[in-house]
């Protein structure tokens, strides 16, 4: 009996898992975020941690933001938008001017040229 139960639960969980797939698809993405200082770092990382993002780390020197996320819950564009929403330009999404202006003085990074 125990063996049957064991087996059926095993099978069930397997099928459940199959039906659930892809339950989570852990992925890493990296992109450039414009910023200057430690204050920027905190702001960027906090903004990036939207639902589905499990890890966000921004490097002051390389300006690269590394994000671990669940590709079934969130897509990179959302993360770009979330970061831009707090005033930081990414290599894909540009922050609104008025939000940028409201940043602390030390955070006023040199903005990339507007693409034609």
């Amino acid at each position: 009996m125990k063996q049957i139960l064991f087996f059926s639960i095993f099978m069930f969980s397997f099928m459940f898992a199959q039906a659930q797939t892809p339950a989570t698809e852990a992925m890493t993405t990296k992109f450039k975020v414009y910023g200057n200082c430690g204050m920027c770092e905190k702001r960027i990382e906090k903004a990036a941690k939207i639902e589905g993002v499990t890890f966000a780390d921004w490097d002051v020197d390389s300006k690269i933001l590394t994000v671990h996320f669940d590709a079934n819950k969130v897509k990179p564009t959302k993360i770009h938008q979330a970061v831009a929403a707090v005033g930081h330009d990414t290599d894909k999404v540009r922050a609104e001017d008025k939000v940028y202006k409201k940043l602390h003085d030390c955070c006023h990074y040199d903005r990339p040229a507007v693409k034609q």
Binding site: S13, A17, T21, P22, E25, A71
Partner: peptide, 25 residues
């Protein structure tokens, strides 16, 4: 049981990420 269930749940993912490779999109 829960351990088995947990492992089984990860089986498909393991299959997608072969050991020793970096995969991506």
């Amino acid at each position: 049981f829960s351990l088995l269930g947990f492992l089984a749940g990860y089986l498909p993912l393991l299959a997608q990420t072969p050991e020793g490779f970096v995969t991506g999109l």
